Amino acid sequence: MPIAPPGKTQCNVYLPIELVTAAKHAAIDSGESLSTFVEHAIRGRLETLAKEQSR
């Protein structure tokens, strides 16, 4: 079992197969790991929600 980098933890989620496939391809195309790609996607969504809630 791989050891997580400091300050990170593993999180298992269930997603539609086509979404995972698209995310994997997008991560490769952008030169990122899947983990980094998903992290950026989640951070972006959280920022959007925070902006919407502050209005």
Rank of each mutant, 00 (worst) to 15 (best):
M1V: 14
M1A: 15
M1Y: 00
P2W: 02
I3R: 12
I3Q: 08
A4P: 02
P5H: 03
P5T: 07
P6R: 01
G7C: 03
G7Q: 01
G7F: 00
K8D: 06
T9Q: 02
T9W: 00
Q10Y: 10
N12R: 04
N12P: 09
N12E: 07
V13A: 14
Y14P: 02
Y14L: 13
P16Y: 09
E18A: 14
L19I: 10
L19V: 13
V20G: 04
V20D: 03
A23G: 08
H25N: 14
H25I: 15
A27K: 02
I28T: 13
E32L: 14
E32K: 13
L34T: 05
L34C: 05
S35N: 15
S35V: 08
F37P: 00
F37G: 01
V38A: 13
V38M: 11
V38F: 07
H40C: 09
A41G: 11
I42H: 02
I42N: 00
R43G: 10
R43Y: 08
R43L: 14
G44Y: 04
R45W: 12
R45K: 07
R45T: 08
L46K: 08
L46P: 04
E47C: 12
L49P: 09
A50S: 09
A50D: 11
K51G: 12
K51C: 04
E52G: 06
Q53W: 05
S54W: 02
R55D: 12
